[in-house]
Design a protein around this nucleic acid. Structure first.
Lengths: 259, 259
DNA sequence: CAGTGGTCTAGACCACGTG
DNA sequence: ACGTGGTCTAGACCACTGC
């Protein structure tokens, strides 16, 4: 049954309450976008794999290809999907080198980044303080996993990260799995725990180095450090990580583009 | 004459070199986008005013309305144009409050920003050092205007900005005009000097407060400050400003969204 | 009511990747 | 040769704005 000029849109049809001033129906492509997001959230398509073609999706949702296209356009512009001409549309993944530097904004001053590596100092269960619970959208005392690591540029320690994760999805985390895994942490979250990080909000400050910072980063006490607080989210605005990084910025910097 | 299926695209036509492997023609909507950018750069439409309607532009460029639409979509997503349903498409301006906080990323910790104000300390000609020249894409020794100001949140000084501008467009700048102007600096650049800032790149570091910083910001010497280096650009990737800010981050923070 | 941008459709052809 | 996404067109109708 063809839709279009003479038939009403297939979703969120008109009736229901008679004269009730119903909420205006969202555009079709927004509804399609929502359905795609639901499928992503449910894990119907795994990171790195192709989703159905535009024509297939058009049939499934009973809309035109152009409408599916517009929905996918939005998701691609948010880096949730990746289009590849001639091949298909793929679920974005933290495994591709392409996605690496979207969330690693600290760069050496001299151009290209040296090889980065992690050294994990700690990994243990913890209870959420009121502040942590607030940031993660949990109750005070909720079970968390706590991780401490140092990030090195070449051989030099440059970031000391304290990371808190909800124990729900991340209960199985251990020092061994962390040490064993190569690649970015978000890649591990995605492939080992089925939690895909899609966006984050950061707050930056300059703070003096504490004794702990100084020991881990090999700088004098009181040295100004860049403190980066980050809350990461997965599908549906669900917080999945709070991270506090202390960064040495003598030979590197945090870069940002404003547009 | 209708274009489309049986006729070649109107721009960048096919011929020229016979079998020469000509550079592949850019998509039509990209060419339209380029033409629109040229008109913006030339000042054909001033900030805050409406550009011609999509149908008008389609006639002017001899393409379909959909193609114009796609070009405008891109420029709108880059915040160069602003669509307003029922009214038209407008050239973005730094005057609207909407654009204010795109380039002011330092916020008080307690939610909404108090009234910000500027106090100008200096405004004088200067010659470009090698480093400044490099950042601004000028020759060493090129004439610049130098401005120093303090930005206050409520009554408290929070940012000390050193700003360098090419004397070409900004030769007429003076302490009086700065003091007299109300609103964001980029608004002044746009309305008084015809230079519209459209994007910027920043590098952030933590540094100890110097004597000068401390005097202007009323903090102890050595206090960690957030140093923000910014190069701003106008149409055509032309640098129009280098700015170095030193920010107190005890009761405020630099925020950023990663996606 | 006329004009603007916003949505939706349908169909053609192109460019790319794979078999 | 085939299927994918990418471009381009044409035309319909909707939603908002302002006269």
């Amino acid at each position: 049954m063809p839709l279009g000029s003479s038939t009403p849109p297939p979703y969120e049809s008109d009736d229901g309450g008679r004269a009730a001033p119903r909420a205006r129906t969202r555009p079709l492509y927004r509804q399609v976008r929502h359905l795609l997001l639901e499928s992503l959230r449910r894990g119907e398509w795994m990171p790195g794999t192709a989703i159905p073609s535009e024509t297939e999706l058009a049939v499934r949702f009973q809309v035109s290809q152009g409408t599916v296209r517009k929905a996918i356009d939005e998701l691609a512009s948010e880096n949730l999907l990746v289009r590849r001409q001639g091949k298909g549309t793929f679920v974005a993944t933290h495994q591709e080198p392409r996605a690496q530097y979207r969330f690693l904004r600290l760069l050496p001053d001299d151009g290209t980044p040296a090889a980065t590596s992690s050294r994990f100092l700690e990994c243990c269960p913890q209870r959420a303080s009121a502040q942590l619970a607030d940031r993660l959208g949990l109750r005070t005392g909720a079970p968390l996993m706590y991780v401490r690591r140092v990030l090195l540029f070449g051989d030099w320690p440059r970031v000391l990260d304290d990371i808190w994760l909800p124990a729900g999805p991340f209960g199985g985390l251990s020092a061994e799995r962390l040490a064993q895994y190569k690649g970015p942490l978000y890649g591990l979250f995605e492939s080992e725990f089925g939690v895909r990080m899609i966006r984050a909000v950061e707050e930056l400050r300059a703070v003096p180095s504490t004794a702990e910072d100084s020991a881990a980063l090999q700088v004098a006490m009181g040295t100004p450090l860049l403190r980066v607080d980050r809350v990461s989210y997965t599908y549906g605005d669900r917080a999945i990580e709070f991270r506090r990084g202390h960064c040495v910025t003598n030979d590197c910097h945090y870069w940002n583009r404003l547009a």
